[in-house]
């Protein structure tokens, strides 16, 4: 875990130094950067993006858990992008069975833009493989965005996780809010907040509520750092810290 953290820190530092200077991207929020909801905006056709992230979780009754996340996104068609990523996790005291114990492929497609009264909708399909739990599942994500106030945006993500081993479906719902901080005078930081609820497992009817707060800050013309905290309430209490970096290529 410590070694992995050092590696990630070094990679983040290197990327920050090496980047020449990214357009502010309040309209392009991504899953895990830093909270768990994303917006409908696909990458522009022809563009590419690299993301790194580190998530550290303290869960009651368990050893601290660290997760790394790396993603590569490509705007492969107009209003569509795909991403491939790996999501290895490490628990203190032992390293998990594989360095790449989770991998996924996602395609996001914006199905309609926002109108004066209508929200913008999109659908994302993500095929995830989680080795440690010997689990493959398909995540289907419905996304809706809507403007509110002068610069704020409301986001809804509804995830359905269907086990490919036919163990049922798990649900994960996020209500998010984002706003450029200090707009219009300052445009480099975006505040993100969410309330969420997820079922405790496949086929479970127990819901775990959660909340999160974070910030994305543009640090160069191509780089954005993000930082967030997440809390899970209810029977499973957890506290997570998230740190990440996005680099436009």
């Amino acid at each position: 875990m410590i070694k992995a953290f050092k590696l990630l820190t070094a990679a983040l530092g290197l990327a920050l130094c090496a980047t020449p200077a990214l357009a502010s991207d309040h309209g392009n929020l991504d899953d895990a950067r830093p909270l768990r909801f994303e917006d409908v905006a696909p990458l522009p056709y022809g563009s590419r993006e690299l993301q790194f992230g580190l998530r550290s979780s303290l869960i009651r009754g368990q050893r601290p858990l660290g997760e790394l996340r790396g993603e590569y996104k490509v705007g492969f068609a107009v209003n569509r992008h795909f991403e491939i990523g790996f999501d290895p996790s490490f628990q203190s005291g032992r390293r998990s069975e594989s360095a790449f114990d989770a991998a996924y492929f996602e395609q996001l497609r914006q199905s309609n833009p926002e109108g004066t009264f209508l929200a913008s909708f999109g659908l994302a399909y993500r095929l995830e493989y989680v080795r440690e739990q010997n689990e493959d599942y398909l995540r289907t994500r419905f996304i809706a965005d809507k403007q509110t106030g002068d610069y704020g945006r409301l986001h809804v993500n509804v995830d359905g996780l269907t086990s490919l081993q036919s163990r049922g479906t798990a649900w994960d719902i996020h209500f998010g809010y984002s706003e450029p901080l200090g707009a219009p005078r300052h445009l480099e930081s975006t505040l993100v907040a969410e309330f969420s609820g997820r079922t405790a497992g496949f086929g479970s009817s127990d819901w775990i509520p959660g909340a999160g707060l974070g910030i994305r800050k543009q640090v160069s013309s191509l780089g954005t750092v993000d930082f967030g905290v997440e809390l899970d309430f209810g029977s499973v209490r957890a506290f997570r810290l998230v740190l990440g970096y996005t680099l436009g290529l």
Binding site: S24, L187, S221
Partner: peptide, 20 residues
Amino acid sequence: RNPPRFLVDEAAISPRFSTR
């Protein structure tokens, strides 16, 4: 007088205009 350091996402500060 105090211009931004980076290229600005215009749609973020003109959401109604950009949508319409």
